[in-house]
Design a protein around this nucleic acid. Structure first.
Length: 108
DNA sequence: GTCGTGACTAGCC
DNA sequence: CGGCTAGCCACGA
């Protein structure tokens, strides 16, 4: 077999694809998405990908948070991110998902 | 080809 | 728990 590209699409596209699979009411960390893409060290790039996410309302990028449970950032505004999560049933206390373990998507 | 940037993370105090 | 530091990666200029 000839060499096959590990990623036909840019990292960003793969990130968005994964993000779309996050169930409503659940959340995933940047690090986990990176690991799911077989690039556990690319959590930085993952964050950038979501930041440039052109499918803002389509991709549930608000369900991606930091590994420590803090909501992290949001292109439209952190405040908005928190509001969306709260609407989905994710409890947030002082900008942090609580309890994180309960809302983390274990599929990744 | 090199440099700067950022929605991050783990470690240490 | 909170704050600071250094290390990491992909992408665009």
């Amino acid at each position: 077999m000839k060499h096959k590209l590990l990623s036909q699409s840019s990292l960003a596209e793969q990130v968005w694809a994964l993000t779309k699979r996050i169930p409503r009411g659940k959340v995933a960390t940047y690090g986990q998405l990176a690991k799911a893409l077989k690039k556990p060290r690319a959590y930085r790039a993952v964050g950038n990908a979501l930041n440039k996410n052109p499918y803002a309302p389509i991709v549930p990028c608000h369900r991606v948070i930091r590994s420590d449970g803090s909501v992290g950032g949001f292109a439209i505004g952190t405040n908005k991110k928190i509001a969306l999560l709260s609407k989905e049933g994710v409890k947030i206390l002082n900008h942090k998902v609580t309890p994180l373990k309960k809302f983390l998507c274990k599929f990744y």
